[in-house]
Structures are given as C-alpha cells and as structure tokens.
Design a protein around this nucleic acid. Structure first.
Lengths: 205, 205
DNA sequence: CCCTACATTGATCACCGGGTCAATAGGCCG
DNA sequence: CGGCCTATTGACCCGGTGATCAATGTAGGG
C-alpha cells in the first residue's frame, strides 16, 4: 500500500483534470470520488486527502472553470477602438468564445443549476456581475448622456445601463442556444439587431 | 398492509404535486421516491406502481412543467394588434411570466442541465423550438421583406429570422437574470432596445 | 356474499456514494 | 543509516437510493 510516485503537487491538478474530463463527457453527477480516482489512476482516498470533501473538489473545479472566463473582455487591444466598434468587437468575441467552449459553458450552467443553495451560485453570480461591469463602460459611452436615440424611437431611448443589461441577456441567451446546437448560433444575426441601434455613421463616402 | 383509500386516479396527480413541491423547494436531486412518498403521505412502493421508474416520474413532472408554457403566446387577443405592438406585447407578456414563475423556469433549467443525455433535452428543446416558431411570424411581419432598416443602419438590416432568434435569445437571457434575482429584471429596459428598431411611427400628433 | 381485480403497503435487496482510517511507502534531513 | 513527515493505499463503514415483491386491504360485479 501506497507511496508517493508523483510527490509533486501536480497531483491536485491531475485529479482536477480527471474530474473535468468526466464532468464534460458524462455530466456533473458522474463526478464521484471513485470515478475520478480511477480516471486519474489513483486511489479514492487520495481525492479526499487533496480536497477535503467532494464539495471541495467541485468548488476547485468550478474555480478552474471560472478563471479565464473574463480575460478576453479586458484585453487591452480593445481600448483603441471607437465605442461602437469596441462594443461590436466585444460581443463578437464573446459569441465566438461561447460557441468554441460551449461544453465548458454547459458545465458552468450545470454547476449553477445543480443545487439551489449558495455553494456555487454566489461565485457564478459574482462572475456574471463582473461580466456586466465589463460591458457597462462601453455601453455608457455608446449611449451617451441622453441615451441612444436610435434615430427611430420617438422619445429619448436606451440608456447605457439598459443597453448593457440587454447585451448581457443576449449573450446569455446565445449561450443556451450554443449549448443546444453550437452550429445554429449566427453572431451576425444577433449583432445586426444590436448594431441597428447605432446612429448612421456620419456618412462615410 | 395497504388498501385503496383514494382509489381515484388522482393518486398520480397527488404524487406529481408532491414531487413538484419538493423539486421547487429543495431542488431536483431531492426528488427521491421515499421523500415524494412521504410528502404525499403514501408508501414508497406506490410511486413505482404509478410511474414505473424514477425517470418515469421525472418525465411526467417535466411534462407538467412544459404544459401551459406556450399558452400565453398564442392567445387570440394578440392577433388584433398591429405587428410592432403585437411583438411588444408578446415580449412583455413573456418577461412578466418569467418573473412570476421564475421558480418554475429555474426548475426547467435544472431539468435541462441535470443530465447530458437526451431523456429530458429533446422535449425541452422541442419546446424551445415551438417558442421560436411562436415569434417568427410577428418578427417577419415586422421586418417586412427587406428587413428592418432601423432607420439607422446603412445597409439593409435585420431579417425576420434574425430578429426572432434575437428576441428568443433575449428572453432566455432574461430568464437567467430572473432566476438570479427576479427583482432585477426590468422589462422596459430590454424592450427599449428592441423597440428602438421600430421605424418612427409615422407622426402621431 | 364471495371472489376477482386492483391499489397499497412496508419490508427487503443490491448497489453505490461520501467519508474515515490504520497501515505503508517513499523522500529528506541529520 | 535512522527517524520523520507527507503522500498514498485500499479496505471498511454507514447511509441513502432505486427497485422488487409477497402480503393485504378495498371496491365492485355477479
């Protein structure tokens, strides 16, 4: 019985990787200590040695999932663009990411809805909150002080806050669509609707 | 041991009601044969007598959840309105329903993400599909043959299909927002963005 | 009034999940 | 080399779950 063959702390990472693999392919419910251990080629007890409980393992897995989620939106290359172009770029980047990593997104939702308590939800909701905050500045810039008049609505129009929450709702909705059928997501269709709000770009001859 | 006290076929309904109550308050995982039986005041065996398996019970529960989901959108009172007004009304009705029944919506998502297999997904996706179909006609009417020009985008604009998928995505996104925090859903904000696409309503003095 | 059909019970089974733990194997430091 | 600390093992316990089943009670038809 037992001795360190990989004494390195990579063990935890290896376990997490195995858990991740199982969660992606067989669902969150399939992530059990025994199965993870088997997939990682170790003994079940080790799982509880490195993570104290199953919830510990799942929380660690969730952290892996959430890290790197927000990177693309704060990429410095965006700040050079004009507001509307930046917003368009951000949305497009997000939609593309959603389609590419739809399996991960699905897993994230599986985490969220797996239990009604706050164990996972607070983290995920915090992440969603940061999501909105990432979009707020651009949307406010785009809307201006009076809101987007859209050159069409009679009165005033859409404030920056409205636009931001709309954009986030749109992306979340697209997530679900991407999970159902990744191939059915057409970023151009969704973008067209948002960009229709843009005032005519000052004659570009 | 045992004899019919409620020989009526309401038994199945009573069991379903108990399961529904448990699912809403304690989550899908809490729906076990014993707990449901206890909540319904019957013996565990009865659950398997009326529904053959746990999956049978869950499928029946899902059916309960899906029925009545689409009623509001096909309400005949809508057909009298002008296209844009009808679209606005439909979206508003849906958003209100989402907020009111957010617990049910949450349960629906819990069903969807509870397992990667097709046991629940096909039904739910079919329901989503009908959802889109319910919005398609209005959106096509609103967009017209050339698409919504929005009076702002340079070229053409948004086709009816684009608009419909956008609207559905928006509503799905709002669902998630409603689950996180029902009080934070502002239908006006989301509607404002969509309605900004409407061409100026021909001077209404 | 019995007897058949059906609803109902509750005990019971096999199984699997999370979690614990004594035993042990390796590396490392003196 | 000898101890010591940590990683590791695998057997084990306990609780809960889905599912089965013989026994039993009730209703209703002849």
């Amino acid at each position: 019985m037992g001795g360190p063959k990989l004494p390195e702390q990579e063990r935890a990472d290896a376990i997490l990787a195995a858990a991740y693999r199982i969660a992606l392919t067989e669902g969150l419910d399939a992530v059990t200590a025994r199965r993870v251990a088997t997939a990682a080629g170790i003994s079940p007890g080790l799982v509880f040695f490195h993570f104290q409980s199953k919830d510990g393992l799942l929380q660690a897995l969730l952290d892996v999932l959430l890290n790197g989620t927000l990177d693309a939106l704060t990429h410095p290359s965006l700040s050079a663009l004009a507001p509307w172009d930046r917003l368009e770029r951000m949305i497009r980047v997000e939609l593309d990411r959603l389609v590419e990593y739809h399996a991960g997104v699905e897993l994230l939702f599986a985490f969220y809805f797996s239990r009604p308590d706050d164990l996972f939800r607070t983290r995920i909701e915090a992440s969603f909150g940061r999501y909105l905050e990432a979009f707020l500045p651009v949307c406010q810039e785009v809307a201006g002080p009076g809101g987007v008049s859209g050159a069409s609505t009679g009165v005033g129009g859409v404030s920056g806050d409205d636009l931001a929450s709309t954009v986030v709702a749109l992306i979340h909705g697209a997530s679900i669509q991407a999970i159902r059928n990744p191939a059915s997501v057409y970023p151009d269709a969704l973008l067209a609707t948002v960009l229709a709000l843009r005032p005519r770009p000052a004659e570009r001859p």
